[in-house]
Design a protein around this nucleic acid. Structure first.
Lengths: 118, 118
DNA sequence: ACTAGTGTTATATGTATATAGTACACTAGT
DNA sequence: ACTAGTGTACTATATACATATAACACTAGT
């Protein structure tokens, strides 16, 4: 995985795992790879991976059982809320950013329509 | 100015100044506030502000004259390219992010239309 | 009991960022 | 010449992040 140098790696990994949960790559209640395996997969130190996991647990997105492993939350509301929250953040960042550049809503609409080729 | 804790302050200040240039708040060739004044305005250390400025100069967006001050580039192509680059980055981040959440182009279109209330 | 595989914690090191404080180099106005 | 206001550079300190390395705590299977 390619990491952006300006944002902490553990946050980028969290984002990636959240996406996998939202898109169903990781199903509700499913066991995720061990911290050590994930650290190897993302080519990252165990401590960094551990930080990403404990932060995901703190946010209620995964839960862990010592000696056993970590699992995606079984709560479907958590997954739905996660998707909603992440898309809302993307929309706000995009619209707010474009407005900050001086585009009004109708211009933004035209630009995004062109970009999507619809 | 409120700073995001996850991204370096000097980058956020650079972004703010770029936006001011793109939107014409800072005109081509116009003199910008001194490093010390900007540091006070953004409530940031002089060294941090200096870093933002020297980086902006490195990118050709402003130029400085020792003992006199810093000025927005006079090149209109620079400003136009800056706007293009910044909006392209926003679009790519938004569309890429939404696709990463599992939305296809037509869904993204519907969502953004609703968000823009058009 | 033992072992392998889990999560978890701790110490030490290096780098990037932000700060405080000081000093230097240059320019314009007096 | 002097002074005030520019940009610029340096040292030192503190914090966050990422790494290497080691150890501890718990669980399941043998």
């Amino acid at each position: 995985m390619n990491f952006n140098t300006t944002v902490p790696i553990y946050l980028q990994i969290m984002d990636r795992i959240k996406k996998d949960i939202v898109t169903g790559v990781l199903a509700r209640g499913e066991r995720i790879d061990s911290v050590r395996a994930l650290a190897a997969k993302f080519e990252v130190n165990i401590n960094t991976m551990q930080r990403a996991c404990s932060e995901l647990e703190r946010q209620g997105i995964i839960f862990t059982q010592r000696g056993i492993g970590s699992f995606v939350s079984k709560d479907e509301n958590v997954v739905a809320a996660l998707k909603e929250e992440m898309s809302a953040k993307l929309i706000e960042g995009f619209v707010g950013g474009m407005e900050g550049l001086g585009y009004d809503k109708s211009e933004i609409f035209k630009i995004i329509r062109k970009a999507l080729a619809i």
